[in-house]
């Protein structure tokens, strides 16, 4: 969760768009601590002026962001979204649309949703609660979110605002800070080993000689998570402790 919060460090005065429980907690934690200028929604059409607990209604509303404005805001670039991923590959291509052949999928999922517009217009990070070779695959079945190689192939209009700052899973934090823009292990969550990550990843990761641990939450952050933001412990439903 602290790793998710860190995604929005130094983001400034932009909209944090977290999808999923842990990213939502991360964004709220970031706003309550080191990123006070972030904009946050209630998950629907309101920009919240306070930072309520998960599931609680906002006490203060500071703005209005219905879907039509949200979709238009994406193109302004003043947003950093953290999406889920049913599949993600070493180039950062992401799939939430379907598994198998698109024409007749073996498993239809959500559809591409806003992944194409997100990835070409504003920073897009990913959150994977269960790191496995079924998610971290060599090739995704349908490119919903655009990765680095595909953006480069598509030309300057595609790369101009394209950026995947990080991928966060229950095992570690990953980025694309390599010469060929493929996925690299940035940090391991405490207690996780490099071998564990490699076994759970369906492609060859870049692993630096020295891999740091993801920083642990400090006392104030723990208090905010446990007492203020998620007293109902919804976070362990997404990532079993």
């Amino acid at each position: 969760m602290v790793a998710c919060a860190e995604a929005w460090r130094d983001a400034g005065e932009i909209l944090a768009s977290p999808m999923g429980t842990v990213p939502t907690l991360g964004a709220r934690l970031a706003r309550l601590t080191f990123a006070p200028d972030l904009l946050l929604t209630d998950g629907e059409a309101l920009l919240v002026g306070d930072t309520p607990a998960l599931g609680a209604p906002p006490g203060i509303v500071e703005g209005w962001l219905p879907y039509r404005q949200h979709l238009a805001l994406v193109a302004t670039g003043r947003r950093h979204v953290m999406m889920g991923a049913s599949q993600i590959d070493r180039h950062g291509n992401q799939n939430i649309s379907c598994i198998g052949d698109w024409a007749r999928p073996t498993r239809q999922l959500l559809g591409v949703r806003g992944a194409p517009v997100n990835t070409l217009n504003n920073p897009t990070s990913y959150w994977v609660p269960k790191h496995s070779p079924r998610v971290f695959v060599e090739h995704v079945d349908m490119v919903s979110g655009v990765g680095y190689a595909r953006a480069a192939e598509a030309g300057p209009s595609a790369t101009r605002f394209h950026r995947i700052p990080e991928v966060i899973s229950n095992l570690g934090v990953f980025d694309f800070d390599t010469p060929d823009r493929t996925m690299r292990l940035r940090s391991l969550h405490p207690g996780v080993t490099v071998e564990q990550v490699e076994e759970s990843t369906g492609f060859a990761l870049t692993v630096p000689a020295e891999v740091p641990y993801t920083r642990a939450p400090d006392a104030d952050e723990l208090r905010l998570i446990r007492e203020v933001l998620d007293p109902g412990d919804l976070r362990t439903r997404e990532v079993p402790a």
């Binding site: 698109w102 591409v112 194409p116 217009n121 349908m142 490119v143 953006a151 209009s157």
Partner: peptide, 13 residues
Amino acid sequence: PVRAALGSDVMKV
């Protein structure tokens, strides 16, 4: 005109 979809499989399908 939109920037979305370039590079994605939306163009392919």
